[in-house]
Amino acid sequence: MQEPGTWKEQLKKEQYQSLFAELVEAYTERLYWHIRSILLRHDWSDDVLQECFIKAWKALPSFRAESAFYTWLYRIATNEALALLKKERRFQLQEGALNYHLSADPYFDGDEALKNLLEAVAELPDKQQTVFKLKYFQNLSFNEISEMLGTSVGALKASFHHAKEKVKVQLNLNEF
């Protein structure tokens, strides 16, 4: 993913306001869909997207630009989304309502097969879920995912393999 070289120049010159505006323009949509694929719900995704950009804004002066801006933003977004998921899961476990039903979501219009797939993926452990979504839905390479999550390519491949196997089993079970 190529980023304009002017962004690093703006960072060096401490032109944070204009740089941030460009980052918002370039990545709001992509980050939203990334967050939405983890959280499924629009309202949660909206909150996390906002939190992600606020954190990025505050941390922008300390960003060393050793990695690409999108890698950095994706990492913040992933961490924020997983943190919210963990918090909500704990809350839902206490409340006794663990499953989120996409069919009840006004912002979901996928067919039955897609709904089953997303619900099966939502049952996976957080790490496997994230890898599966980044690989399958967003079509990112293992190298890109490795940079985003700070995990080795080997470990990611193993996670993806396990995730795929579990989803297969889950979908077969759902059919019967």
Partner: peptide, 23 residues
């Protein structure tokens, strides 16, 4: 890939403006 998700109309435009204003 399409995941069947929808968003409110004009969501991204409004969100971008909101984020820039926050900064």
């Amino acid at each position: 890939k399409d995941q069947g998700f929808k968003i409110p109309k004009g969501y991204f435009e409004a969100k971008k403006d909101q984020l820039k204003a926050l900064a």
